[in-house]
Nucleic acid binder design. Structure first.
Lengths: 160, 160
DNA sequence: ATGAATTGACCATCTCTGACTATTATAGCA
DNA sequence: TGCTATAATAGTCAGAGATGGTCAATTCAT
């Protein structure tokens, strides 16, 4: 039998046919399928994650919504994954700068963006004991890289 | 449904089109939208804060008014200093995002750069206990801002 | 038996209102 | 003139209502 999650997934994908993004009410959707609202979050987390090429944005409170955005196909995905693996849980400043330079060589980021990234991961920025800096730098760097690659896809303003 | 707050925000911004400041009667505005007067204060507080680049002045009593001023004529140098002061030693994510949005409004950064900055200072990026995050975010953010303004001086402008 | 799916209790955030407070102008009066 | 009462504004804050989020426990499908 088709799982509830599968039905919800299909429903959302049909809604998105032709559209690059849609907005839904979590509660309405849940009611439509007669399930718990959190079930919607489950479907979004398992079928509409960044890995699946989607970005979820939402707002709570009166007039709240859940927006589902489909990202374009990514040709550079392998590079991103390679870089994320390379960075792992810690990375020193020189290595990070080398990666940024590489991205600039490949015209994936321009000079201004490269300088921004260096600023964010510099020793100065990360005001912590030396040992912790590399770990924190890796976290910030990973996040920025993912953003860089999302930007490549044409959509410019999607944070996660 | 479009939220009342969103409508009021749009209305005010349309009034301010071309103008650098406007004056309104709180009660009149509230009546126009059929809401409680304090709703106007709510909109001003959440959409026209200093972080968003506005200043609110008002006077009570007969002939009272609310004046909404859009900050814009500061030189970029002063803006940098104002922002660094504003950020200080700690800043939460929402405030930082408001500042980034303001920079984007003023075309000081473009969409890609804004998204990069948000990525660098997001909760996800700063893998630390909550209490320390705001402090670290401020440090990273300050560093990025200084870089942004250095980029301006060099005139290295790449639009997307 | 195992991992996926589902639920429900509890949490976080955003809006909006109304009661109460603060401030200012002005009319009326001594 | 000077003082005071009143009317006309605006500000603040706590709380209710409306959403969405998270996570641990449970159930289900293979």
């Amino acid at each position: 039998m088709a799982q509830l999650s599968d039905s919800i997934e299909r429903f959302i994908k049909e809604l998105m046919d032709e559209e690059t993004q849609i907005e839904v009410r979590r509660n309405e959707l849940a009611q439509h399928f007669g399930c718990a609202p959190s079930q919607i979050n489950y479907v979004l987390a398992t079928r509409f994650s960044v890995d699946h090429g989607y970005i979820i944005e939402s707002r709570r409170g009166g007039g709240g919504y859940v927006r589902i955005v489909r990202m374009c196909e990514r040709s550079e995905e392998n590079l991103l994954n390679a870089l994320l693996t390379r960075i792992g849980n810690a990375v020193d400043e020189d290595s990070a700068c080398a990666i940024i330079a590489h991205l600039q060589d490949r015209k994936i980021v321009n000079g201004r963006e490269a300088s921004l990234m260096r600023a964010a991961i510099s020793r100065n920025a990360l005001a912590l004991p030396i040992s912790a800096k590399d770990v924190l730098r890796a976290a910030v760097f990973r996040n920025m890289l993912q953003q860089v690659f999302r930007n490549l896809e044409g959509g410019v303003r999607h944070d996660v």
